Amino acid sequence: MNTGSGGPGEVAMTADDARTGEARTEAEQGLGSRAPEFVKARRVLHLSWQVGIFIVGLAVVIAGIIMLPLPGPGWVVIFGGMAIWATEFVWAQLVLRWTKRKVTEAAQRALDPRVRKRNIILTSIGLVVIGAILGFYVWKFGFEMPWKIKDQ
């Protein structure tokens, strides 16, 4: 069982590592199935386990895709489905590692004071432009909806 938040370069300890007193970084941890040993020991049971994990992960990912245009945390649910797949499939583990790395890099870039200042300035300019357009619309047409405006 891993401890810690699993951030990049963070040292995580498994039960085996705790017994031996060793710690491994995320990159050093092995990829592969995290199924219980009694499941991995029986081929048919392990295959059934993987099929079940795939179906559950697929259902969660599909629910996330449905939530993208609808109200709901679509991307969070999609990444949750990927995390379910990552318990069994190496490809999903690699995708999640890549995604974590990219999200961490983006968060660090967003917290850079120069980037934050630029983003605040651009957002302010955008809000002023939108406000000017809305003000002009209300001045010209009042509070009428666009589809109810008569020829003037």
Rank of each mutant, 00 (worst) to 15 (best):
G142Q: 09
G80S: 10
K100Q: 12
E37Y: 01
T87Y: 08
Q50F: 01
G80A: 10
L58I: 02
V103S: 00
F136V: 13
V128Q: 03
D151Y: 04
Q108C: 02
M13N: 09
P146C: 09
V77M: 11
G64F: 06
R97F: 11
A18D: 14
V60H: 07
I78C: 03
V51L: 13
P146F: 05
L45Q: 07
T25Y: 01
P36L: 00
F38L: 08
T87L: 13
I65G: 06
W147Q: 12
V56A: 12
E28M: 11
R101C: 01
L96V: 08
G30E: 15
D151N: 03
V129P: 00
Q152A: 11
V56G: 03
I66H: 01
G81S: 03
L31H: 08
G21V: 06
G6M: 03
R43Y: 07
V90L: 05
V95F: 15
D17L: 01
G81K: 02
S124G: 13
E26G: 14
A27N: 10
R116T: 12
K117E: 04
E88T: 12
N119D: 13
V76I: 11
A132M: 14
R34A: 02
G126D: 02
I130K: 04
W75N: 03
L111M: 14
T104F: 15
D112Q: 03
L134F: 11
Q50G: 09
E10K: 06
G21M: 05
E88C: 10
I149M: 10
L111A: 15
I125D: 00
V138A: 00
T123M: 06
T87Q: 07
N2S: 13
R118E: 10
A110P: 10
D17I: 01
F79N: 03
M1C: 09
W75Y: 09
R34I: 07
P71G: 14
G7L: 11
P69C: 08
A18F: 13
L96C: 09
R43F: 12
E28D: 11
Q29V: 07
P8L: 02
A83Q: 05
E105T: 11
M82V: 10
G135W: 15
E10A: 08
L94A: 00
F143S: 11
N119K: 06
A27W: 05
T20Q: 04
I130N: 01
V95I: 15
V39M: 02
I62H: 04
M67Q: 14
G57H: 02
G135L: 14
Q29I: 10
K100M: 12
I133V: 15
G7D: 13
G57P: 03
K100Y: 13
D151M: 02
T20P: 00
P69E: 03
A106H: 14
P69W: 08
I120T: 13
H46Y: 07
A41N: 08
E88Q: 12
A106N: 15
F141H: 04
G9P: 08
A18P: 11
Q152R: 12
Y137K: 09
Q108A: 06
I133F: 10
P71S: 13
L111T: 12
L47I: 14
